[in-house]
Amino acid sequence: MTISKNYETTMENHRSAMNDTIRQRFHEFAYGMFIHYGLYTLYERGEWVMSRERMSNEEYFKVIPQFKNYGFLAEEWVGIAARSGMRYAVLTTRHHDGCFIGDELVGSFCDACRKHGLGIGLYYSVGDWSDFDFRGGAKGPNWGRFVEKTHRQLKELMMDYGPVDYLFYDGCPSPQSWKAAELHRELRRLQPGLLISCRCGLEEDVASSEQHSGTHAGLWESCYTLNDSWGYNRYDRHWKTPEKIIELLMTLRHNGGNLLLNVGPDLSGRMGKAEIGILNQVKAWLDRNGEAVYEVVPHPFDYKDQEISVAHGNTAYIQLQADYRGPERMICGIGNRIKDITLLSTGKKIGFVQNADKLTLTGLPFKKKDELPRVLKLELDGAPFGIHNPMWPEDHFRVH
């Protein structure tokens, strides 16, 4: 308990000292690429194949000679991320199988992120199926040796590739069992601007969830797969549509988080045409609507508008929901006087009538089948504020 209280004090001091620009930059990343690539890729059945099929180390690692860990692959991945409108990327340097993907890949990934101006995230799984010291558990005779190895590897990860923005954890046992707080003090000495994932079990810098969205205090992201798999699965063609990805992105931005979208390269180390095609369609939408995604604040009307909304200064952006068909729509709960409304993607002016907190939109173009989500741009008379809906208690708010 003493360690926990001391660490809480340490974290308060850390957050106070950390440049607000670093934290704001992470929020403004908004949209990133998660890359799962490792030995499991060669089995083409997802990243949990070693555990799910209970492979021995000898059986699992026999494919090492076939593994492609060339640096140019990382350059390709990061180039795709940058051209897709993503502003950061996270690479699995070591998954639960315990196999490090190699200096050349990790180094080239970091260099490529710097070249393209992307934030650098490195994923590390503390859990290691191939290590019998880990399998023996925290009460096992060799747990101390496992902890020493974990500390050594993470220090090397933070020393060998230049400045790193974000350390993403996975597969973590109890943080006390592997002395996470002690380790993090050392990692921050090596990387003063480093943001650390809360997935280690401590209240660190960035909260993260998988395959669902919600809200968290401070910095956070939600990680989603482009299909249903993290690591490459040759049988999984259940792709999310561009519309679904955009809706996820806008909902997360409305609630204050980032979208970290996973792509698993295939056994050749390449990303497929289907994935790239989907990302290209999302990018085309971002080219017309990106100002409603990146440098924005969440739920500017304090959820009182009950819409998917964000803002920048005196400008608010509202996504027209799936139930909208046009040509009229009422939006309630906006306290500001509206000066102008346009369709963000085209600049087309939208007619409106405002009566107190009720805003009636007129002349909206009809939504076409398969059309990607549309966003309204509202010019306000000042900083956004909302008006309470009397149908709900004062302390109630709606999270999308």
Rank of each mutant, 00 (worst) to 15 (best):
L154W: 01
R114L: 09
S125T: 09
D103K: 05
D160G: 02
D103S: 01
F146I: 11
N142M: 14
K115Y: 13
F109W: 04
S130E: 05
V126N: 06
D128L: 05
D111E: 15
F100P: 00
P141H: 11
G137N: 12
Y166L: 07
K155L: 15
G107C: 00
G107S: 07
Y161S: 03
H116W: 08
P141T: 11
M158Q: 03
F132N: 12
D160V: 02
F132I: 12
G117C: 05
V106I: 12
V164W: 00
F146E: 09
D133T: 11
D131W: 01
G102T: 01
I120M: 00
M159E: 14
L154G: 04
G119W: 02
I120A: 00
G121A: 03
M159A: 12
C110Q: 06
R145N: 14
G102M: 02
R114K: 14
F100Q: 02
N142S: 14
K139E: 15
I120R: 00
G107D: 08
L157Y: 01
D111C: 09
G137K: 07
K139F: 10
L157W: 03
P141D: 12
E148V: 10
D111F: 01
S125L: 09
D160F: 06
I120L: 02
D133I: 05
L167I: 14
S125F: 08
L122P: 10
Y124Q: 06
G136D: 14
G121W: 08
M158S: 04
S130H: 04
R145F: 11
L122C: 08
L118C: 13
I120K: 03
K139V: 07
V126M: 01
L167V: 12
G137T: 13
R152N: 08
L154K: 01
I101H: 04
Y123K: 08
L118H: 05
G121R: 09
G121L: 06
Y161M: 06
G162C: 11
V147F: 07
V106Y: 01
A138P: 15
R145E: 15
G127D: 04
H116N: 14
N142V: 09
D111A: 15
H151L: 06
C110W: 00
K155E: 15
P141G: 10
S108N: 05
E148S: 09
K155S: 08
T150L: 09
D128P: 10
F109E: 13
D103H: 10
D131T: 02
C113K: 05
K139P: 00
D133Y: 10
Y123E: 09
K115S: 13
S108I: 08
R114W: 08
D103P: 08
S125E: 11
G107P: 07
Y161F: 11
F134N: 04
A112H: 06
G162K: 08
K149M: 15
V126T: 13
K155P: 06
G121D: 08
E156V: 07
